[in-house]
């Protein structure tokens, strides 16, 4: 909610300085919002279907560790194709940790979750075009894998 406190205060200050500019800023806000709205709705469509196909239980079921490297690949794939706000993802990561899942696998999952967004492609594509969107997400995937491996080393799980 602090977003609205900030937005409200800034709006008020803006109004004190210039009524005309404030009206213009609201028009820009509305125009930008409406323009990107279809992409947002498409993202919600994808998220709702993906969440049905890959619920939390599936994630915790499949990351129950036989081979750590297979788990890392699996975790990073799941992290890339799902979408979760932090207040759901990290409690889930905490549960996984208690179940004995390694830090490396959890890192692969949470880091790809944050850095790679297959489901947000509709929005990213609208601004950046498909090619750059794909490049950026592939780079994010590789960085996430690197971070996971180094976390694995730091926690003594591999090497």
């Amino acid at each position: 909610m602090y977003l609205y406190i900030v937005a409200g205060l800034v709006l008020l200050v803006s109004l004190c300085f210039s009524r005309e500019k404030t009206v213009r800023s609201l028009k820009i806000a509305a125009r930008r919002f409406i323009k990107i709205l279809p992409a947002f709705i498409l993202m919600l469509v994808l998220v709702s279907v993906a969440l049905y196909l890959v619920p939390d239980e599936v994630i915790s079921h499949y990351l129950g560790g036989r081979n750590i490297f297979i788990d890392v690949i699996l975790a990073s794939s799941l992290g890339s194709i799902t979408f979760m706000p932090g207040f759901i993802a990290f409690p889930l990561a905490g549960i996984l940790l208690q179940k004995g899942v390694t830090y490396m696998v959890i890192a692969a999952f949470t880091t790809t979750l944050m850095m790679v967004g297959v489901l947000t492609v509709p929005i990213e594509k609208a601004y950046f075009g498909l090619k750059v969107t794909v490049i950026r997400n592939v780079i994010g995937f590789l960085i996430a894998l690197t971070a996971a491996v180094i976390i694995g080393i730091a926690f003594g799980e591999i090497l």
């Binding site: 800034v10 803006s14 213009r24 806000a29 930008r32 919002f33 947002f40």
Partner: peptide, 15 residues
């Protein structure tokens, strides 16, 4: 979140 965020974007653009 979206309306608040876009209001801030609009203000940013103008000011």
């Amino acid at each position: 979140i979206l309306p608040g965020a876009f209001i801030l974007i609009g203000l940013f653009e103008v000011w």
